[in-house]
């Protein structure tokens, strides 16, 4: 089961992709993924129902979020209304350790993304803030990475004992599936995704 764990739609301020077009693209171009997670910036999209599209295109479409902390951007999986009320998803300066604590308390998972990226990635902030408590998973393959960013992320993950996921970070249709995460078992709901991530049985993949 291969899921792109990091995508954005037009719900994000810099996203330009309609979810239907993502589905069409995956099927028309035989992109080797079974589904994707919409991780919109600084919000969780409670409104949209993609179950019809998922059925029509035989794809898994899940929802998460990408929030912003003092260590850079962080993906959150397993968002529920109670979790959403515990901190301000729209803030650009959330304390990462508190985000992780809240996620743990609400059976969700937080994973720093593109950690090798200057300014908005975790590794750039380790010297200033130290190693944060509670991180288990980081994104080691990001479809938007430039230069050595993925290598920096992988080296940081190795050094600190983190497990890697992959996601395209697509903002336009044709970038979906460039990086993804493979799971040994089916994942069809947000709860199953959280369980699969907590099992720590997955591997990051890249097609770039």
């Amino acid at each position: 089961m291969i899921l792109d764990l990091h995508t954005h739609s037009i719900k994000s301020d810099d996203g330009r992709a309609k979810v239907r077009n993502y589905c069409q693209w995956v099927r028309t171009r035989n992109v080797p993924i079974d589904g994707f997670v919409l991780t919109e910036h600084r919000q969780f999209d409670f409104e949209s129902d993609y179950s019809g599209l998922a059925r029509d295109f035989d794809l898994v479409i899940l929802k998460g979020a990408e929030v912003e902390t003092e260590y850079g951007h962080v993906l959150v999986y397993g968002v529920t209304e109670p979790l959403y009320e515990t901190f301000d998803f729209g803030s650009i300066g959330l304390p990462l350790e508190e985000v992780i604590e809240h996620c743990n308390a609400h059976d969700a998972v937080a994973a720093p993304c593109h950690p090798g990226r200057p300014r908005v990635g975790m590794s750039a902030h380790l010297a200033e803030h130290g190693v944060p408590k509670g991180v288990r998973i980081v994104e080691i393959y990001n479809g938007g990475s430039r230069g050595e960013e993925d290598a920096v992320a992988a080296a940081m993950a190795d050094e600190l004992g983190y497990i890697g996921i992959g996601g395209s970070d697509s903002h336009i249709v044709s970038h979906i599936g460039r990086c993804a995460t493979e799971f040994p078992e089916p994942v069809t709901t947000e709860a199953e995704l959280v369980a699969a991530l907590k099992s720590e049985r997955f591997r990051a993949i890249t097609t770039r």
């Binding site: 330009r16 992709a17 077009n21 693209w25 938007g144 430039r146 903002h171 249709v173 044709s174 970038h175």
Partner: peptide, 29 residues
């Protein structure tokens, strides 16, 4: 690449990507 076609409005949507020699995306839209 063409990523949407609206035959009623006679419009197409096109993904555009500017990459450098290393294959890095510099601009998209």
């Amino acid at each position: 690449v063409v990523t949407d076609i609206d035959e009623d409005e006679l419009t197409v949507e096109i993904d555009l990507t500017v990459t450098n020699e290393a294959g890095e995306t510099r601009v998209f839209g």
